[in-house]
């Protein structure tokens, strides 16, 4: 599904990633761990084509992402730290915009009931500028649930979520795994990582251990 061959990236001439290579099969889920500043988010942003890289290559579904038009990475979805949506828009407008960006046409009722599942129903029409961090995190998972993707890169899915928010997100992730979708996440505590992935890769100062 995805094979990354000796990616390296330097910020201000300081090498953050030194020849990272790993591959991920269909349906396999991997958790990346490592202390802050080890380059985990940079690696995810590079795979999502949000950030350029110095050398190496990324093959996603058999196509080299650098050489090929962005349309080929439509099955790859990236959720970063920040919600990545427009603060003046409301939750529904944001979701509609992101869905139409990827040419997915879902009727309103489906969006509404996924929002309802996540308890965002009552504030669905307010601009997301007023949302709390936890609500934004849930909105991201709602967005992931609505999109159709084969592989997803989530940067810390469980950050600033309350108790039932955590169960909701965990339920959805295991649901995705049962649907044989490839997931790679960045997590920090070990026990969460254990029951959510087949493999754990730790990133230590730019090298995969």
């Amino acid at each position: 599904m995805l094979s990354v061959q000796n990616i390296s990236k330097a910020f201000n001439r300081k090498k953050i990633l030194k020849n990272i290579s790993f591959s991920q099969k269909e349906g396999e889920s991997i958790v990346f761990m490592g202390r802050n500043g080890a380059g985990k988010s940079t690696l995810f942003r590079i795979i999502a084509r949000l950030m350029t890289y110095d050398n190496g290559s990324i093959i996603f579904q058999g196509k080299n992402l650098l050489k090929v038009k962005p349309i080929h990475s439509s099955k790859l979805f990236y959720l970063g730290h920040s919600p990545g949506m427009y603060h003046p828009f409301s939750a529904i407008e944001n979701l509609n915009f992101l869905l139409s960006l990827r040419k997915i046409y879902k009727d309103q009722s489906e969006i509404l009931d996924v929002l309802d599942q996540f308890g965002l129903m009552e504030s669905a029409n307010e601009p997301i500028g007023v949302y709390s961090e936890g609500m934004l995190q849930r909105l991201k998972i709602v967005c992931a649930q609505l999109m159709d993707w084969d592989m997803i890169l989530i940067d810390e899915p469980f950050s600033n979520l309350d108790k039932d928010g955590l169960d909701l997100v965990q339920k959805h992730i295991s649901f995705w795994r049962s649907q044989n979708k490839t997931i790679s996440m960045i997590l920090h505590n070990k026990n969460h990582a254990e029951n959510f992935c087949d493999r754990i890769l730790t990133l230590e100062s730019g090298i995969i251990k």
């Binding site: 330097a10 910020f11 001439r13 350029t52």
Partner: peptide, 8 residues
Amino acid sequence: GYIERMKR
């Protein structure tokens, strides 16, 4: 910004 982006 950082050197690589500034060069671009």
